[in-house]
Amino acid sequence: MAHALEPQAKTLAEATSDAPYGVIGDLDPRIRIVMACLFAIVTVALATIPALISALSTSIGLLLLSRLPIRRTLKRMAMMDSFIIFMLVLLPFSMPGEAMFTVFGFPASWQGLWKAIEIALTANAVILSLMVLVGTMEPVTLGHALHKLRCPEVLVHLLMFTIRYIEVLREEYLRLRSAMKIRGFRPSTNWHTYRSFGYLVGMMLVRAIERSERILGAMKCRGFSGRLMLLQDFCMTRRDYVFAVLFSLVCISLLMLDFL
């Protein structure tokens, strides 16, 4: 996952108000979350290849609307594919059905191949729409929107804390790593490496706990009573309603296409 967070990539807690995401970025965050969930449920329910291809096209359409860097987003999507590729490659061999060809005496079935294609299309369509609709939000906005969508308050607090401290702790991790590097540490497959990494993790956790004690002290000093004031307010405009209706229609037509 380290490649997901390139050094120059924007951090989760950093504000990026100067990078608008086109039509998608202007929509109410709440409607984006709800629509992403709706689209995911509809897509998972689809069972025919044409419907799934349309679903993936819908996601790609959203990507084009959002002005996200297309190549980087698709690269991230492909990274997920590299995780599931083994399972997909195995499917034709493990699913019984009409034989397509045989490798070392193992028959590969057409049914398995179609199943693998179905899974790949579903997974990519859902994750791409999620990254475009929700991933373009600032993480802090995501927390606020989830709060407004009646997520438990403590869970939202936990999310906000995590978002806030991921970057701080990553910097600490990089600092510790460069300290190790400066002392000539080069990771390889040996006991010394594993011990060093283990101590690194342990040190990070000890420091994290001590840091959290200081944070709690500082928050109590400022009158923290267990409630975070979430000040961001959202209001639904006509464009949000139009988007919601249009996108729901797309979802319904995907389902219709599936039944036909």
Binding site: V154, L158, F161, Y165, L169, R170, Y173
Partner: peptide, 17 residues
């Protein structure tokens, strides 16, 4: 809450190692 939040963030970072 702060402890859990900071630890949650550290495990997120640890998964980058």
């Amino acid at each position: 809450i702060p402890t859990a939040g900071v630890l949650s963030a550290s495990f997120f970072v640890a998964s980058l190692i």
